[in-house]
Design a protein around this nucleic acid. Structure first.
Lengths: 186, 186
DNA sequence: TATACTTACTCACTCAGTGAGTATATCCGA
DNA sequence: TCGGATATACTCACTGAGTGAGTAAGTATA
């Protein structure tokens, strides 16, 4: 794994989540991913297929070939019980305490929690805030050797603080609009 | 490539840069990387070797086997003219306008520019600031569909703004201490 | 009638990254 | 003195991230 606390560095849980909500096929899942979470995950079509293939080989999805009248044949993907369990575990577990984890993992969890269990949103936001505070505290006492390492550390701390501010704004947004209106697939 | 503007998503230029300054071998380069730029690049030893092997296969480095009296044999790596050119081009070219580019690419360039041509530092900082301002401006007019995409966009803008603040602090640091005292390899 | 787009996917490739393993030498304490 | 920890210096096999081009059909458009 690249740097730190990478539970999911690819949109695998987003894809799993779409299929948790309803079955679908690769082409469509890619479109939904870019439409619904395009500011979070920027993946190519082939990469989407790569991930789906892996999820399938790991037993989280099953595929069924469907021939269509006029359009090319497609593989309808369905989530397995193992896949459902995996997704639920992911959704319930906290995200990491880094910037990246918030930008990717946490935001994706927000997206699904909003649709599946909006009552958990305040707790999720509070937990994440706490986690980030801990990370900041840890970095603040850390000493780096050399000017560049010090600057890098300062940058990371600043970044984390701005995530904390953003989380406050987030909390506001969700208390203002407790019910999601723009449900996907409608 | 993962998300956006990834000129160098691995410490290849840092390694090339170390060898630009003086020849060395893999083990030592990895140690220097973690010591000098450990807050920027967090790579395993084997990954360092992977990158070095690639640089070698691309003709930017040459290796020479050296047998030692008591210690294991090692490969001394030397930069080629093509490698020097590549490094110089990288050092002179601007970094991307994203957070990641600053955290990785730009900071690494700062590290080397400080040693090789400190007079360019103010210009580098100014250029990078300008680039980031442009990115912010671009994102501010962009509209995202859906609450989550909007939140993600707001987060990115906040992140960029905090990088801008950090750049100001950076400029201060470098005007206060124009001469680097902690040169490596001394 | 040509051509360009949409649907739906496949393939071959490079790069990122890890974790364990190998082999030798030195140091340090019981 | 003997055994274990640590340092030097790499290697290997593996999974996963990511791209870009290609394929093959139907459908709209000019």
């Amino acid at each position: 794994m690249p740097d730190s606390s990478r539970r999911s560095c690819s949109p695998e849980f987003a894809l799993l989540g779409f299929l948790y909500l309803q079955p679908g096929h690769g082409y469509d899942l890619h479109r939904r991913l870019t439409a619904e979470l395009g500011e979070i995950w920027r993946v190519s079509q082939s990469q989407t297929y790569n991930i789906l293939k892996r999820l399938q080989s790991q037993g989280y999805l099953t595929a069924r070939r469907v021939t269509q009248e006029k359009l090319p044949a497609m593989q309808t993907l369905e989530i397995t019980p193992a896949g459902r369990a995996r997704f639920e575990a992911w959704l319930a577990a906290p995200s990491g305490g880094g910037v990246r984890a918030v930008r990717l993992d946490f935001l994706t969890r927000l997206y699904f929690a909003r649709q599946l269990d909006p009552s958990r949103l305040p707790a999720m936001l509070a937990d994440q805030t706490e986690r980030l505070r801990q990370t900041v505290a840890r970095l603040e006492v850390r000493q780096a050797s050399g000017e560049i390492n010090r600057l890098s550390l300062q940058l990371r701390i600043r970044q984390l603080r701005s995530v904390l501010e953003w989380l406050e704004e987030c909390a506001e947004t969700f208390t203002r609009t407790p019910e999601p209106e723009d449900r996907p697939g409608s």
